[in-house]
Write a protein that binds this DNA or RNA. Structure first.
Lengths: 400, 400
DNA sequence: CAAATTAGTCAAGACAATTGACTTAAAAGA
DNA sequence: TCTTTTAAGTCAATTGTCTTGACTAATTTG
């Protein structure tokens, strides 16, 4: 009699959804264009002057925007531009990597305020969680000291770590694979340990988040970040939002199979930093490995040059694949590779393979260099809660 | 003085946006769940009973929904389910293929009402456009005859043709490539010739649109349709919407490069129907080619079996790639391949390659069979304007 | 036959965007 | 210099849409 089939539906919306969206739209416009007057905002967002005025007053009271010097732009009353207040919101980002963890505090506009790191003991989450929690706490208390308002303006904790998530067993016996962390209920543990909203993304997604808010993908709706780190991944900005797939594993392009030397292998076995370390015979755990690689790259070390030549072939294929499959406005190379290595890699990848993206009327280059420093992932993690709280999103309109 | 830099911003919304969204949400819920009572709808959409009642009254007046027999479900007043009225809206779909064009009329729930086809003369758009326009006109007038209201309830004309769009020159000299059509201002011409709203998508996207509204992807938010036709493509349902990339070319997976026999080649050179025709030495233009292939497949013709074995290797790789890159809930094989061939292909592709999607807790199979008949693409084209007009979308909320 | 439960309506209220008239301030032109 | 034009921004009333709480209606349970 009682058929309790679940009814599936999209959520409806109401006045608050409308209002929330319009606030987000205005904040987004200020982030994208810098300071704008109320009249400018009204034109850009297609809202009425009056609506914009009301929202701006609210945002000003909330400490999210502030007026600047009036400017005269020809006839008519001078306009009063409003800009985002950096101290209007804060977020903390946490990167969990194989043997190290990094935490960053950022403000509303994405400035990095604090950065701290700690070594992760072997032993996975059991021994690692206390270290991680302490690191976050340390950043949080320093932030509190700096800015009185910071604590109540803290919108969340973003976490980034290598994917893929939720796989049932490691495909690899490498002790530095992240399996134990990936199977651990990290979100719940960190939420309980900090009392903050916690979100999780993989390294490549974190880089894409950072590039979109403060980097080369700023203002782009379709961009893919080719992340070259210990593994390889793609961070996907599709239709203006980060896309992470049904289970958070979209973009794990490093696991894509290619035929090389007559056998099927994974992209990241051939072109990642892991493969470079192996090629060089260095220990991936060495603490100064980043600067070591950077220096040797800058000096055009022959072993590194040889690896670059080889890796460039596979990365060129990866760019072709990304262009073919996603049709983005641009591809951004980013991630944990030292800058000197990354620039050389990009050079070695030229010319790119012919593809649909190869057209003369492009406003943007097919491949460009994004953030490449060891803090890029942590920064992306930090910036995610800011975007989540303040950027226009479909789901932000719907009723909870 | 006048710096006229363009200001970029997302559009704001207002009461009408809210209302439009809620209407769409309700229609979507009815499409997804079948007939529902007002109370059910209120629970499912999180709107209040009253709001739902108001909207339902409107929709009933607009002829989009109608009440069914009341049903008693335990205690309390019996509920009155409402269902979509098929005759509430109509759309026409047009497929333009290499040597044939097909047109279909569908109603609000995606029923196919009329189907007609015509041969396309060689010579591209110059000679083809009149044929196409006449075919559409013929379907339209038959629809008008059948249903008096059809004309004013016609929401648009959806067009599908092989991609990629906007490339500057053919990579291929094949006379059956669609270059001339792809460079022709088709949308504008058809809009002018019919007075309808016209939209364009590629074959794979059209199949995905159809699968989402009336097929295997019904109700799924993350699904990829692996289209195997004359070419190969992927139709992408990402986050509940069709994704087409920055220039409409997302999912052109047939152009992905793979190494086979020691050299880099495109997927669709190895596993498409074009490759089958070549393998069999048959003329792709033969009018009865579809049923020919269907019959020979059903009879397990050794030449076809040989091709299947070979193609399955590459398609298996394609599924792996799709799973790795998009992390969908399921992959759906669909498109112009005859049913007998498609089922054999799916069988030959088992077991699939290990991937992130290969987990025991899957609610859906990794690979399943979708629509495979010569009308699938046209049906997808037809269904697109319906979805565009009635499905919940972010952009439908924003001010025009 | 009364109580409980669920569907659905009515009418008033709340919320947020819109409208049109108004004020303010500057540049351009006579 | 003075008037006109133009643009930014505010005020107050209005409109559109969802929400609230009380109500009616119809059915099952005990």
């Amino acid at each position: 009699m009682n058929d309790i089939r679940p009814i599936r539906a999209t959520s409806g919306t109401n006045h608050e959804g409308t209002s929330a969206h319009n606030r987000r739209v205005i904040i987004d416009a200020l982030r994208l264009n810098g300071a704008l007057s109320r009249a400018d905002l009204a034109r850009a967002t297609r809202l009425t002057k009056q609506t914009v005025s009301n929202i701006m007053e609210e945002l000003e009271n909330d400490g999210l925007v502030i007026s600047r010097e009036t400017v005269r732009r020809g006839r008519g009353q001078p306009s009063t531009p409003y800009g985002l207040v950096p101290e209007g919101a804060f977020a903390i980002g946490l990167q969990i990597d194989r043997h190290i963890t990094r935490a960053i505090a950022v403000d509303l506009v994405g400035n990095v305020l604090i950065r701290k790191e700690a070594n992760l003991p072997a032993g996975g989450p059991a021994t690692g969680t206390p270290v991680v929690l302490q690191l976050v706490e340390s950043v949080r208390s320093e932030l509190k000291q700096r800015t009185a308002q910071a604590e109540k303006r803290l919108v969340g904790l973003g976490v980034a770590m290598p994917g893929p998530f939720g796989i049932e067993q490691d495909t690899d016996d490498n002790p530095w694979m992240m399996g134990p962390w990936q199977r651990f209920p990290l979100l719940e543990t960190l939420a309980a340990g900090t009392g903050l909203n916690v979100t999780l993304q993989n390294d490549a997604a974190a880089c894409a988040t950072a590039e979109r808010m403060v980097g080369a993908a700023h203002g782009l709706d379709h961009a893919v970040c080719l992340y070259v780190g210990y593994g390889i991944g793609a961070g996907l900005i599709l239709g203006g939002e980060l896309y992470s797939g049904a289970r958070g594993n979209a973009g794990e392009i490093g696991m894509a199979l290619l035929t090389a030397g007559g056998r099927l292998t994974q992209l990241e076995h051939r072109a990642s930093l892991a493969s470079l370390y192996e090629h060089l015979g260095v220990d991936p755990m060495a603490p100064d490995i980043y600067s070591l690689i950077d220096k040797r790259s800058a000096a055009d070390d022959p072993e590194i040059v040889a690896w670059i030549e080889k890796a460039a072939i596979d990365l060129r294929w990866a760019v072709h694949l990304i262009e073919t499959v996603f049709d983005p406005q641009t591809v951004i190379l980013c991630g944990g590779a030292p800058a000197a290595l990354a620039t050389r890699l990009i050079d070695a990848m030229q010319p790119l393979l012919p593809s649909n993206a190869d057209r003369t009327d492009r406003p943007l280059p097919r491949l460009q260099l994004g953030m490449t420093d060891p803090w890029a992932v942590a920064r992306g993690a930090a910036v995610e809660p800011i975007g989540h709280a303040f950027d226009p999103r479909f789901s932000a309109i719907l009723k909870s």
